[in-house]
């Protein structure tokens, strides 16, 4: 490596080792080391599990929604059992049960975990940082319309907002309404309309305006 002056700039942001080694980080490392040392799990199993968790993305939820829009029988099965419906599409949604809550012209659903940050991560991947913030967790229950407006979603007064607080062993995803103007779209194009926030309920799918 060159010791030339222009390589000596300090990094613009700290590297991962530069932060404090917290009590919980130490606990995680110690438990993982013990599980490996005692042969409870192998390093390969640990790596594969972490890769499985990281492979989950909101696109998988979007596929479920698009299929439900196209296939009424699948929609019924999705509302009964998200994990089983996902398995039909070859998607492993994990062992924690997920319930889909369906938007209607009169009802808009929003997901939160006021106590911590429960989220259907085995289906949708890691929750966004704002989902874990105290501001979102407290305000979306107390003033959901104001919070949704900040996300750019203004709902008419006749639409009831139902906030689902994930306080137990069940996780939630929103089944949004198929947007107007999407009648001619194929399933794959429909899935592309369903973003992560649509699955949390802080947005609704929209067909981009023709330019």
């Amino acid at each position: 490596m060159s010791s030339g002056g222009h390589h000596a700039h300090p990094p613009k942001q700290p590297d991962i080792e530069d932060g404090p080694y917290s009590w919980h980080m130490a606990l995680t490392d110690a438990v993982a080391d013990l599980l490996l040392a005692k042969g409870v799990i192998t390093g390969e199993e640990l790596r594969r599990t972490l890769e499985t968790i990281d492979a989950a993305t909101p696109a998988r939820g979007a596929r479920l929604v698009a299929r439900a829009w196209c296939d009424p029988a699948f929609r019924t099965r999705l509302l009964e059992d998200v994990n089983a419906a996902a398995a039909e599409l070859g998607i492993d949604a994990g062992a924690i049960p997920i319930l889909a809550v369906e938007n209607t012209p009169e009802l808009h659903n929003v997901i939160v975990c006021t106590l911590c940050s429960c989220y259907p991560r085995y289906l949708l991947g890691a929750a966004p940082d704002w989902y874990k913030s105290r501001a979102y967790r407290s305000r979306v229950v107390r003033e959901p319309r104001a919070v949704l407006a900040e996300f750019g979603l203004e709902l008419p007064d006749h639409v009831r907002i139902e906030v689902h607080d994930s306080t137990a062993e069940l996780r939630y995803m929103v089944l949004p309404l198929r947007p107007p103007g999407s009648e001619g779209l194929a399933e794959e194009a429909l899935a592309a309309l369903v973003t992560r926030d649509c699955l949390i309920g802080t947005a609704v799918p929209r067909v981009p305006a023709e330019s």
Partner: peptide, 23 residues
């Protein structure tokens, strides 16, 4: 399911909106 009217009766906004918690 709880109505906002029950949880926050002093808040005139959107009293028909609801919250569902798992208890």
């Amino acid at each position: 399911r709880f109505r906002r009217r029950e949880l926050w009766p002093e808040d005139p906004r959107a009293q028909e909106d609801t919250v569902v918690a798992d208890l």
